[in-house]
Design a protein around this nucleic acid. Structure first.
Lengths: 349, 349
DNA sequence: AGCGTCACAGCAAGCGCTTTCTATCCGATA
DNA sequence: TATCGGATAGAAAGCGCTTGCTGTGACGCT
């Protein structure tokens, strides 16, 4: 039924071993033999059996990429960059590898299950993107899993995720705290003193770090934060919309709204507009990430640019062993403040 | 070193066969035995060897999803929906399956290579999303590959892609032509007679179909198209920006610009604004797809909504054999015209 | 001429699991 | 009580490939 190595060997009049070696190309094979084999492969339209070779060689060419939400460009961009370096077809490196993008939906259980699935497939490497969940038991479970993967020879890279100490995982972390702080300082510098903050899900590291940066900025400038000024939500537009209405309800005198990310900021803009407020004349808005659409918003969004693509590419290269991991296995990647149209001085109050 | 089935068997005092049966759960195993085995699995922290079981069982639990550009929400949304039905952790269906999202970057070669890689892994199913390339040799090569996959028992589903006759592939096709026509008719209905069109890459089916719809509308209303009114580009914002400037240069009297998709439309809006034109007072703009950000654009984008999520979910279910394929293996999915702020009557000329 | 050296090619032993077929134990049936 | 069939468990034969080790000529060297 299906063509096997043996069939090719028979046709090329060589042993299966030789065919295997031609296909894997890491053993001397005479040119004439090689050609004969390749011809047979071609004629029989032979396709290697992946599982069989993975079993025999005890390695696989799968690389897992875990993302929270594949529909979110934040992850899409990173995944794309990672994958471009993983190889896959078109990648520079030989040895075609299959990049597996796994959508965890932000769920800790799914994350764990995917990790197990990848472990089961004996993945060559795994890249985890995006913030982690702070829940201690889960964090421990994930750490244990990463440890195990690393022990089994799977290279583990965290991209845009806090380091996971003692697991052998390389971490490329975004400086969310620093970015958050810089962003809020920018607004404070413009004269804002009453700033609302729309945070992401409370249990995520990214949420906490950005918020901490925000608060550090407030504190540094002697601004006492009002508990009403922070609302938690999700990392999506709708959440931003609703949270903004809530903020406005709690304190209509706010002159700026800092959002957990750009999508949230967009929702915030919509809510403000629907409430009859102008941006930035009445209320300034700031996002985070600088996703492609942010520059197209009207007004364009003041935000913190994260080098998603660069970070992803680097993570991919490290995962493939094509780049030295950073010293200590940890690198912090800074964001860049992008001042645009959505932020301005506060209205006279 | 690594724990194998045999180790578990030894520990549970049963044969490897029994362990396998417990794990796969499709053979009667006494409750007490099962429990003993599961305990051993737990204690040893055993993880099944995927390749080995795939080899022995001659089936794998990998499902491939091919997308043109993972960083583009159009594909991200579909991929997400497909994956949610594929199972993966959290999916309803048992038998966890690993969804593999492959980024072709729109390149025919990569598409083919990924298909081979998937074939090599003996994927359980493959879903191809997005338009195809029209290039005949390549189309034939892909068709042959799909045929082979289908023959090997891999379920093949096309989602948002034209049917591939005689390959055994199920097709859920978007009615790009109809949508394009409806959209342009809307603009014509508003009084526009001079409409620019920013198409996607010339060799893609999606591009052609949408353009055909546009032209059909023009023709139906007796509007003769000026060759200067069509510009080809890519499916991204920048392309829309540049193409719009080009259109404006060619014919400043245009009163509407129809874009290949929403991203392009956003670029068009930016270009128009930068050219000092108001939307829709001076020039109306229309997009296609209705991606999430379209409603947030200012003005919000008139576009054709494609039920990406629903289509993806359905494709996923069909791929998993959990839903009947449509009669004839082909279903056409219609878009829905969403009239919003970016389209209005033409300026008095 | 004799022998060590290469450069290749083949043998065969698995890799870790699934699954068919067979053996066994029991309660049920006559 | 002898027989049977159902319910479980085990033995063993692969699944298709990789790879360490073992030939085997051909060549070059002394």
């Amino acid at each position: 039924m299906t063509v096997t190595l043996a069939d090719v060997a028979a046709r090329a009049q060589v042993s299966p071993a030789t065919v295997s070696r031609v296909l894997n190309g890491n053993y001397p094979v005479a040119a004439s033999t090689r050609e004969r084999v390749l011809r047979a492969v071609d004629e029989l339209d032979y396709v290697l059996n992946g599982p069989a070779s993975a079993l025999a060689a005890a390695t696989s060419d799968l690389v897992g990429i875990l993302v929270n939400d594949i529909a979110d460009p934040f992850f899409g961009i990173m995944a794309s960059a990672i994958q471009s370096e993983i190889g896959g077809p078109g990648g520079r490196a030989g040895g075609e590898r299959l990049a597996v993008v796994c959508n965890t939906g932000g769920s800790p259980e799914r994350e764990l299950t995917y990790l197990t699935l990848l472990q089961r497939q004996r993945a060559a490497a795994v890249v985890l993107t995006g913030g982690a969940v702070e829940d201690a038991p889960h964090a421990a479970a994930v750490a244990a899993k990463l440890q195990k993967l690393a022990d089994a020879g799977t290279r583990v890279v965290l991209c845009g995720r806090p380091p996971s100490p003692d697991t052998g995982a390389i971490a490329l972390t975004f400086d969310n705290r620093g970015g958050g702080r810089e962003l809020t300082e920018h607004l404070i510098g413009l004269g804002h003193r009453r700033l609302g903050y729309i945070a992401g899900p409370e249990e995520r590291t990214t949420t906490r770090h950005r918020l901490e940066g925000h608060r550090a900025a407030l504190e540094a400038h002697g601004i006492e934060e009002d508990a009403r000024w922070t609302v938690y939500g999700r990392y999506d537009r709708q959440s931003g919309y609703e949270a903004t209405l809530e903020l406005l309800r709690r304190d209509p005198s706010l002159t700026a709204v800092v959002a957990a990310n750009d999508s949230v900021a967009l929702g915030a803009c919509a809510a403000l507009r629907d409430s009859g407020l102008r941006i930035p004349e009445d209320v300034s808005v700031a996002g985070f990430d600088d996703l492609p659409f942010s520059v197209d918003a009207v007004p364009s969004l003041t935000t913190v640019r994260l080098p998603l693509s660069e970070a992803g590419a680097r993570a991919g290269r490290i995962a493939m062993g094509r780049e030295e991991p950073p010293p200590g296995g940890i690198a912090t990647i800074r964001g860049e403040l992008m001042v645009r149209g959505s932020s301005g001085g506060p209205r006279a109050s």
